[in-house]
Design a protein around this nucleic acid. Structure first.
Lengths: 192, 192, 192, 192
DNA sequence: TATGAATGAGGGTTCATTCAT
DNA sequence: TATGAATGAACCCTCATTCAT
């Protein structure tokens, strides 16, 4: 019991750091975020961070993995819905629900991808995987609906979300996300 | 004569700096770009930059203004086309033409907006104006086409471009932009 | 039984650490070597090192002692030879044999002495003892040969070795050591 | 005059840094010396060091160059002597003169070479050049004296100096250097 | 005895900004 | 106006040493 809680505390710390990284990197951006910021949020002494992550990049990587896991969970939940159209609309509904976060910080994945592209380390490939996972899942839904242009539709859907996230964030207007959500839903409905 | 040529040279320097800033900030990102980088590209001594721009932020602002002027020029050119639908399709065609740049650096305005949002200075409002200008123009075209949902369509169009820019850049695939361009054209055509 | 075997295991660990320290400190230098490096080579967990050595300096001391013991063994072996001139020439032959190590890392004692001198801890005195032991032994051989300048010759011999080690290492040429070895042998022979 | 003094001040600063580096690196060793140490001795603010030297390694390189220049000056002075044997003995006399420095810090070139070998950067090649320059010069003198074994003698001479420097430093005894100096002089004399 | 985890001081380096001329 | 030089705050990272168990 004591041992297990000790193990838990250690693993907990790593996870706390990864979670803090995911949040803070989203909110402040990769470049503006210092290790001290992440350490503070995770309530871990700065020097100790390096016991778990050898470089700042590894911390960014862990943040991406956190997002990847979130996406997996989301997909798993959506897959429980019976109809592909419903699944897609539930995805959209989720986006709309989080529109206030989008207003303040944009899409976590999209802004991260944009920033990592400029950095020159190899991390952009990792976010690309994450992005592809989402597109692939959407494609599967469109295919399930019998669409022959499933890939193109999937790309268009995710692009619409990425784009409206940028606009919602830039123009500080959550209603943009809401309206686009309704438009996308109508689009899905028009396919049935 | 000497003064005027000096003035000319100075204005030339200021513009060279603004242009260099626009390019380099797009390619490297705001945070990764140093004043020295911009000065080097503009072929202006580092110490001299501060004669024209008191802070790095003012240089970023100048870069945005450069983009704003580019947009004005573009709009002016598009407005010479007779039909609103043609104008919109010409806009889209321009996006597709520049897809290789999007692959490497994303949309200049979008990535800048994403980065500036994280910085906390007041510059995000300036990019927002730029973004709004484009949306407003698109809205005018849709209205001209007799659409009652002109604003929503305009937002959707620009969002589509922003989003596909993110995906094109992240996934390093220019074909994404091309395909989305064709899709958007079809959409415009379907409105006629 | 358990205690004794534990004790044995412990002494084994202590010796493994000292041996690892001797090797790694020679190869990487004192400053560039971390405790983790030594622990890894000795296959001892980092945290456990401090049970045997309270500070890094103590580990350096142990490394010196390891070298001292090696020197004792060497001297013991040389002393089995009947003639002092033979003993000295056997010493020289040993140096030449190890010239490839000298090329890569220099003389273990000499480089250690050079490094420890800069550190300001009291360890330089310990290497000095080691160095003196070798000189003393050489002096005894020269005296045994009937030389009245035994001390000076001994110093010259060891200096020649230290110096050619520096050059062999710096210029990365094992042949330097070999040639100097032949020269020194001739010198010894000329005394008989 | 003003301009030239301004230029002098700048160049002076760079040189002051290089000179400080040469001294401090010799006295404290490369690893133990911080940039702040060098900056303090050169009376230059720490942040300003990087205006002249982009990395610590460049500062080390500059220190080596300082030593190289000193050697050139020395050689130039020695070359004014008429006889090669005299030149070599003057070289030796210089070593003996500086025996108190050797006691405290060893030979600047030798200790630097020993330390740089462990560091893994490419600087060891630069010190090697310095060392070779000295050997080459000595070889020329021995050749001038009609020796067929000029190279070997040159290597032996420099090795003797390097080695006695190590011993003088390690055993903290300036008399070692003095005695070895006399021995080497006799050796030179025996060649005439 | 044994060990993973924690800690904090300090080092090298970058860079926006300012200064002196 | 122009410019090389100066400045210092902040950042990432390393590591000897200590702690808790």
């Amino acid at each position: 019991m004591t041992d297990s809680s000790a193990g838990t505390r250690s693993r907990g710390k790593r996870e706390r750091l990864a979670a803090a990284a995911a949040t803070v990197l989203h909110e402040q951006g990769v470049e503006k975020t210092t290790l001290a910021d992440i350490a503070r949020v995770a309530e871990v002494p700065v020097g100790n961070v390096y016991y778990y992550f050898k470089t700042k990049n590894e911390l960014v990587e862990a943040a991406i993995e956190t997002h990847t896991r979130s996406l997996s969970d989301l997909i798993e939940a959506l897959d429980r819905l019976p109809e592909p159209a419903e699944r897609l609309k539930a995805l959209i509904a989720g986006w709309v629900e989080q529109r206030d976060t989008a207003v303040r910080f944009g899409c976590p994945t999209g802004t991260l991808a944009t920033e990592l592209d400029k950095r020159g380390d190899g991390l952009d490939a990792t976010v690309a995987d994450l992005m592809r996972t989402l597109i692939d899942w959407a494609e599967a839904q469109f295919a399930d609906m019998g669409r022959t242009d499933a890939r193109e539709s999937a790309v268009a859907l995710i692009a619409a979300y990425q784009g409206i996230s940028v606009l919602t964030n830039t123009l500080r207007d959550p209603e943009l996300m809401a309206a686009e959500g309704r438009r996308l839903e109508r689009w899905i409905d028009s396919m049935a």
